[in-house]
Computed example of a mutant assay.
Amino acid sequence: MVKMSIGVAFSETFAFLKANWTQMLIWVGGALVVVGLLGYLLLGSTFSALAMAPNDPTIMMGAFGKIGLFALIAAVILYAACMLIWRGGLHPGEAPNFGWALQAGLAFAFGMFVVFIAAYIVVFIVMLIFGLIFGAALGGLGGFGSGMDAGSAGAVGGGAMAIGAILYIGLLVFMLWVQGRFIVAGPVMADRLTRNPITGLSESWKLTQASQWIIVGFYLLFTILLVVYAFIAGLIFGAILGGIAGSGSIVAALISMIITAAVVYLPILMVSFSMPVGVYRALAPRASGDVFA
């Protein structure tokens, strides 16, 4: 079992991006266009109805249903685009298999949905247990009544806040760990041309076992870099695009949105889609040969 190096993972990620940026631009850009059109068709009238009757429970329930349906469809489309990108990068020269990509994207989306639902259930149980413990402890302290002076009460409150902050950070680390353990599930499915998410999830669990905390650090470092990029790009282009959108023209607003997506969000998506393959190549260097050279 190969232990991953963060430097190798960075190198493989950007090597994949450099070798496949054109097809990534096509598939990711196409997926965003399709998702945008579907969002307009599914949610445009819904948001108009909500604006006219924001307190109508029937309209609100319908809106939540449509938003959920749109989120599911968008996830499947984006995951299908990922499958096309990963398969094309790991096995260059193959013709795109759209039927497999849609089925594998749906299966992968469902598999990751189940994984994160299970993770959130664990988080809920942990929060419930700590809530019961803190509730009982604070209730017991409250029984002392006036026996506690202001300094003691403040110390108890400060300790509870500190423990709550540590618990919150621990839960964030746990979610990063879960994401890291299954980060290569998609590339495994693409490499093996399978529609079975269990194959990808189980193989990812095995491959990441020796490097799980290194992957968490890699994820955290990459997330910080992407946030910094988004912040800087937003500052640079915010004033320019704000001036374009502020003209009051629908066309100008649309152009502003397209430029924002192309300059800020599209590069972030492309790098994010390259990360799983970078980690996969760092963990399984013989998986597909030197295809990124």
Rank of each mutant, 00 (worst) to 15 (best):
residue 79 Y to H: 10
residue 191 D to A: 15
residue 264 V to C: 00
residue 146 S to L: 13
residue 264 V to Q: 03
residue 142 G to S: 15
residue 185 A to K: 01
residue 41 L to I: 11
residue 283 L to T: 05
residue 65 G to W: 00
residue 24 M to Q: 13
residue 258 I to N: 00
residue 244 I to S: 09
residue 178 V to G: 03
residue 193 L to S: 14
residue 229 Y to M: 02
residue 119 A to T: 01
residue 241 L to W: 02
residue 55 N to D: 15
residue 151 G to I: 10
residue 38 L to T: 00
residue 289 G to A: 13
residue 21 W to R: 08
residue 230 A to C: 04
residue 32 L to A: 08
residue 271 V to T: 11
residue 113 F to E: 07
residue 259 I to H: 06
residue 20 N to I: 00
residue 238 G to V: 10
residue 287 A to I: 12
residue 244 I to M: 11
residue 119 A to C: 07
residue 70 F to S: 01
residue 30 G to N: 00
residue 64 F to N: 01
residue 37 L to Y: 06
residue 112 M to E: 08
residue 23 Q to D: 03
residue 159 G to C: 05
residue 101 A to I: 04
residue 90 L to V: 05
residue 190 A to D: 02
residue 204 S to E: 08
residue 113 F to W: 14
residue 148 M to E: 06
residue 134 F to D: 14
residue 32 L to Q: 12
residue 31 A to T: 07
residue 275 M to L: 15
residue 266 L to M: 09
residue 292 F to D: 05
residue 77 I to C: 03
residue 125 I to P: 00
residue 168 Y to N: 12
residue 58 T to F: 11
residue 187 P to G: 09
residue 170 G to L: 10
residue 229 Y to L: 07
residue 278 G to D: 09
residue 12 E to H: 08
residue 14 F to M: 11
residue 168 Y to P: 00
residue 170 G to T: 05
residue 94 E to T: 11
residue 62 G to D: 02
residue 150 A to T: 12
residue 210 A to C: 02
residue 18 K to V: 09
residue 276 P to Q: 11
residue 68 G to T: 04
residue 141 L to V: 05
residue 123 V to P: 02
residue 19 A to H: 10
residue 216 V to I: 10
